[in-house]
Amino acid sequence: MRLLGILLLSLTPFLLGLEYRIGLKKRRDFLRLFKEFIIFVKEQIRFCGREREEIFTLALNDPRFNTSIFKRLDIALKNGESITKIFDDNIDIRLKPKEIYEINAFIIDLGKSDTEGQIAHCDYYISVFEQGEKKFIEAYSAKSKLSLGLSLSLAAAMFIIMI
């Protein structure tokens, strides 16, 4: 029993480190997905001239975007609710304040100008998210390895100390 307790306690830092890695991965995947979403929106505006609400409804029919966050975004837009609150309340994907700000800024100005203006708006945010993605990938690989190494070391140290 003592051994089991020590094992479980030792595993805790490792599990925390694993959770941190998974959180980073989810954040990375969401930012990539949102960039794809902006590309989707741009195509709908450029080639179909669909209204904003229609674009969101169409996006939800796409398996890539049929997720709870996009559904909540759709509802928030229809009801005039806060976009930032969706991400503040979301414990599954923890975005940084700067990332939430960029998403909010993209959506708030969506539909406010003519076709050319909207395509430029989408292009700007595609490049913002691409640059963000590059920086994130560099940081992710470093942080991910570091967190794995640290958590394993801490787990081993705790095991040795307690045993």
Binding site: I45, G49, R50, E51, R52, E53, L110, G111, K112, S113, D114, T115, G117, Q118
Partner: peptide, 16 residues
């Protein structure tokens, strides 16, 4: 104006 365009000014450009 935004309500009239249903927040999609670009889709009403021809009419505008």
């Amino acid at each position: 104006f935004l309500k009239l365009c249903r927040h999609s000014v670009y889709s009403h450009n021809g009419e505008l």
